[in-house]
Amino acid sequence: MEQLETLPGRRILTKEIWLVFGVSLGASGLSALISFTGSITAPKALNDQTASLVTDAAPGRPWLGLAWQLFYVANALVPVALTAHFLGRGGEPIRRTLGVDWRPRGMDWLRGAAVAAGIGGSGLVLYLLARNFGANLTIVPSTLGDVWWRIPVLVLSAIQNAVVEEVIVLGYLLHRLGQLGWADWKADLTSAAVRGSYHLYQGLGGFFGNMVMGLIFARLYRRWGRVMPLLVAHALIDIVAFVGSVALAGKVSWLPEQ
Rank of each mutant, 00 (worst) to 15 (best):
Q160H: 08
F133Q: 00
F86A: 07
R222D: 02
A249Q: 03
P79G: 05
A42L: 03
N136A: 15
D146L: 09
G88H: 03
N47V: 00
P93W: 02
G250F: 10
A249D: 01
E2T: 12
T83N: 03
M1W: 04
V78D: 06
I168N: 13
T138Y: 07
G123T: 01
T83W: 01
A218D: 14
G171C: 03
R131H: 13
F208W: 04
F208H: 01
L204V: 10
D184M: 03
L30N: 02
A57F: 08
D184P: 15
G134V: 07
D238M: 01
L70H: 10
V164M: 04
G134A: 12
G38A: 04
F133W: 09
F86E: 08
A51D: 08
V73L: 04
E92D: 14
L231S: 06
V125A: 14
H85F: 12
L248S: 08
S122P: 13
E5Y: 15
A57S: 11
D184T: 14
K44D: 07
V155M: 04
A193Y: 03
G145H: 08
T143S: 08
P79S: 04
S35M: 00
L77C: 11
V140P: 00
I94P: 10
V167H: 02
L156V: 15
G244R: 07
K44Q: 06
I139N: 14
V100E: 13
A74H: 05
Y198A: 07
T41W: 01
D184K: 13
T50P: 12
Y201Q: 09
G99W: 01
A187G: 14
G120Y: 05
G38P: 14
R61F: 09
E92G: 08
T6I: 00
K251M: 09
L110D: 04
D108G: 11
G244H: 13
W185Q: 01
L129W: 10
D56T: 11
W18T: 12
V73W: 04
K251N: 11
W182M: 06
V194Q: 06
G225S: 13
W185N: 00
L177Y: 11
G206A: 01
